[in-house]
Amino acid sequence: MKIDNSLPLEYRNEENRFRIIGFWIFLGAEIVLFATLFLTYFTLWTRTGSGLTAADVFVLEPVLAETFILLTSSFTCGLAIHAMRQGLIKPTMWFMGITLLLGAAFLGIEIYEFYTYVHEGLTLQTSAFASSLFVLLGTHGAHVTFGLLWGIAIMIQLKREGLNETTANKSFIFSLYWHFLDVVWIFIFSFVYLKGLM
């Protein structure tokens, strides 16, 4: 294993450097995945059949709240990595924890949103529009859920082992993932919700 001490902890050994590059490439694939879902949504969003339309069900306030919460969580996630670079375990843990809590809050609002849609009569089976909306949002939501589980697992490891090459590497990769989900949400907010409300 080649070790280079001039680099940040998470980049220090070769295997871990590979992991970071590998994850970037994986995010490339994720971009294609979400792009396909977006294109599906844009193709189908006017095809509401006899069901409700986007304008009928979208409400700005909860979505705006989701946006702020997720953006903030992305910021705190950045702070966690910043603290990690300084070698400060406590703040790293704290900011990670806040990030995950905000993630959970986001997820809670999203579930509430889904609940209201279904309540108003828009379900996965209603129309092509509804199917594409639920699957696009659901895929993002599932990613956030997975992120929460992953983040908890990493926090347990940080707690047990403190900051070392392995835990730093895992935390850093997690942060890439989390920022990516934030970017995807910004697209959802702008091109699904704002466009639907216009």
């Binding site: 694939a29 994720e30 294609v32 995945l33 396909t36 879902l37 599906t40 189908l44 095809r47 509401t48 059949g49 006899s50 069901g51 996965l124 089976q125 209603t126 129309s127 092509a128 529009f129 509804a130 199917s131 594409s132 639920f134 699957v135």
Partner: peptide, 26 residues
């Protein structure tokens, strides 16, 4: 990833009654 999405939509249509590729409801 495009295949992943296509197959997922197919699965939703066939198993959960979504309307991506159906002949009704858009």
């Amino acid at each position: 990833p495009v295949l992943t999405v296509a197959l997922a939509l197919m699965m939703f249509d066939r198993l959960f009654g979504s309307q991506f590729f159906t002949m009704t409801n858009g």
